[in-house]
Design a protein around this nucleic acid. Structure first.
Lengths: 422, 422
DNA sequence: ACAGTTTCCCGTAAATGC
DNA sequence: TGCATTTACGGGAAACTG
């Protein structure tokens, strides 16, 4: 009868940050017989959640509003709550929410809506509630919150199973890889191809990657650290998503970033290519880094591979990535510096690929000599990269199922959006 | 009888930002005969300020506290209010504070403290208040607020003249230059020498700069824009202070930044020096920029001056200034690039001056080739700087009077300090 | 001591108000 | 419309708390 509905900003709904305004909207789907009085709707956070175990929050601002006829659409009654804000209830006694078992981003909450009206002597109570919500207190928890929302909506059909992460189900690699690709297409404009997914599968699952119905656990995806690294698979992947979103969008959308390639595959691809052929991939050792690797032929004819130290958001905000590629130089004492990057793999001349993405160097205010930063590597001795473990390829993935997920995600709670931005 | 006292953080007291916690402390100077009951002190913001004309604020948090015997010191009673927070009173009716005449950073406020006790049947009321305070709502207003605090405390002996900026007095250049120098020594560790002050005097006052008791108006310092520029003298100077604080401290403290030199003086100084002699100065055309100018001899023996486009905080946070000086290169097509900076004026070899300030290039994680950004200028045609107006020199300034100012500024209201930081 | 979590608040951008 | 001022909130860092 009532239904939570479409977000205005299809970004990262179902995550609310305390102290930050969010917006939500409810619509009455049945047409009521003429009601000439004001129909009030009340919003409550965690309405019938028993205290204990989890943190408790409340809505700071006004939580009651009158329904109104929607301007557009078929004259439905609806109400939009804006400027809602969440605050944690602090208990004077020692009862602390969130005891041990679940991390805060696995703790699920919900927003309830109630209305009551009488029609022809009949009192009718209406009530509905949102899909499970994750409450965070700092943007640093956003990646963790978002992966919870994804996992829930991928694997649960229940509208409100707040205990979901008490014993979270596994996903098949086929399901997961589709969601991962969907992340890239949603946030970075272009999804993942089968080679990229194959590398990711290998990284996450090892040799099982070849079978697409291999089961992936929640823990493996987002809780356990990648062996030898201080971050989980999801944290790593999300850092790359953020890097693309902020600094690599155009390059990513042109498909110029191979991104996910094992080091062995990288060598196989580059070894027979023209010297100066390079490819772009993400760092596996650090969060949110991108590097390029190019082939060269040594003096005695042997093939050499070089990679730069990965560029992270700090460097990239001083100098856009396309300009780094254009200007990159290897310098040796007393020699004219040279840019070793000639062809984007397989064989696209660099300027043909990146030409449109270069920033024009504005020849600004004279009487000054303009100056830019250029990325250089100072060569003292030969550096050769070491080989790394190999991953097997992955069968192709067919698109689909997106609809299901996006449908689940359409509830309009978006702590990220400003209420003024429309 | 009571007295506001020393700040814990001698940063920028007397400025309070709404919504940000601040701390204040009051001490009872007279020793009371045994009082065995709790002596309560109450803080009120703008206690007897009539509404209207100015914005009105109130203390959000608890404003009453019991006095306590100070641990250290001679057993005085004192009380420290922490976590105080200001919020603006919003009027439902159209009465808006701050009407026209004064800008918000010229609006003065005050914090009052009251206590009442009976001793031997006598009821005694105590009351005291702070020096005038400036209330801001965003750090972008901090420079404007701080110059008001400086001007008030430089020119007023009254403890609480909230109408001061209705008709602010003038300062002599001698007074002002001392305060400006004091700013640099307080915030950047080293004050201004007489040549630097002379250039500043010339910039602010034109040809009157030669007489040290020339009067400077409040408006000239901080309200009128520098002719042809979209900012006032103070905004310009403060942007430089901030730049030094964040990015140039070591270089500034070694006295390597001449900083304030007119372009004509610059040429006079450099013209007879060894080619490759350079000096560092702040941009006059843009806020918070620093540039270097060096001499060269052209092919036909004539003297040439070059300056780079000023570096601002964004660039400097990608690459520290000392490293820029070390790595700066001028590049021409097909030629080995060269660093034109050889001697810091007058004749200190560059590496001797800056050597200790260079960042060690950490030869980080192999198998990567490390890469840095280097600042380069691409030369296409000759660029020569144009001469500018000349300023006359300024008589020496003697230190002193600092005490008076710092005494006035010692009241412990420091919206910048975290209450936890001790 | 420590890790997970929250709070604090600068600094930028956007909204608001005159 | 433009300018002055406030609000919003991401992001880094510090503080908190079991």
């Amino acid at each position: 009868e009532k239904q939570p509905c479409m977000p205005t900003h299809p970004q990262k709904p179902l995550i609310i940050k305390t102290g930050v305004q969010f917006t939500t909207k409810v619509r009455l789907l049945v047409k009521l017989p003429e009601v000439d009085y004001q129909l009030k709707v009340k919003t409550t956070f965690d309405k019938d959640l028993p205290p204990g175990r989890v943190r408790q929050f409340f809505i700071l601002t006004n939580n009651t509003k009158v329904m109104d006829i929607e301007d557009y659409s078929n004259g439905c009654l609806s109400v939009e709550f804006r400027h809602l804000q969440l605050k944690e209830k602090k208990y004077i006694n020692g009862t602390k929410g969130n005891e041990g078992l679940l991390s805060v981003t696995e703790e699920l909450h919900s927003l309830s809506f109630e209305a009551c009206f009488t029609v022809q002597g009949l009192t009718i109570d209406l009530e509905t509630c949102s899909l499970p919500l994750v409450v965070i207190s700092n943007v640093s928890q956003l990646p963790g919150g978002w992966v919870s929302v994804m996992w829930y909506n991928l694997l649960s059909d229940e509208p409100r199973n707040l205990a979901f992460f008490g014993n979270p189900p596994r996903a098949t690699w086929s399901q997961l890889s589709e969601v991962l690709s969907w992340q890239f297409s949603t946030f970075a404009g272009k999804g993942l191809n089968k080679e990229q997914l194959s590398m990711l599968g290998g990284k996450l699952l090892g040799q099982h990657a070849s079978c697409s119905d291999y089961q992936v656990s929640w823990s493996k995806l987002s809780k356990e650290n990648i062996s030898g690294k201080p971050f989980s698979f999801w944290m790593w992947l999300d850092s790359i998503l953020e890097l693309i979103k902020k600094h690599l969008m155009p390059v990513w959308n042109e498909n110029y970033i191979m991104g996910f390639v094992s080091k062995e595959m990288e060598r196989t691809l580059l070894k027979d290519k023209e010297p100066g052929t390079f490819l772009l991939r993400f760092s596996e050792s650090h969060l949110g880094g991108i590097t390029f690797t190019w082939v060269e032929h040594g003096d005695n004819g042997e093939v050499k591979f070089n990679s730069v130290e990965p560029y992270t958001k700090n460097r990239l905000s001083a100098l856009p990535f396309a300009d780094i590629i254009r200007d990159y130089k290897v310098i040796s004492e007393g020699v004219v510096p040279e840019n070793p990057l000639k062809f984007l793999y397989p064989d696209i001349p660099k300027d043909e690929a990146f030409g449109r993405l270069y920033n024009i160097q504005p020849s600004k205010v004279h009487p000054y000599i303009t100056s830019t930063l250029i990325p250089i590597s100072q060569l003292r001795s030969n550096t050769t990269t070491t080989p790394s473990a190999c991953q097997s390829p992955e069968p192709p993935m067919t698109p689909g199922e997106f609809d299901m997920l996006s449908e689940h995600l359409c509830f309009d709670i978006n702590s990220m959006s400003s209420p003024y931005s429309e």
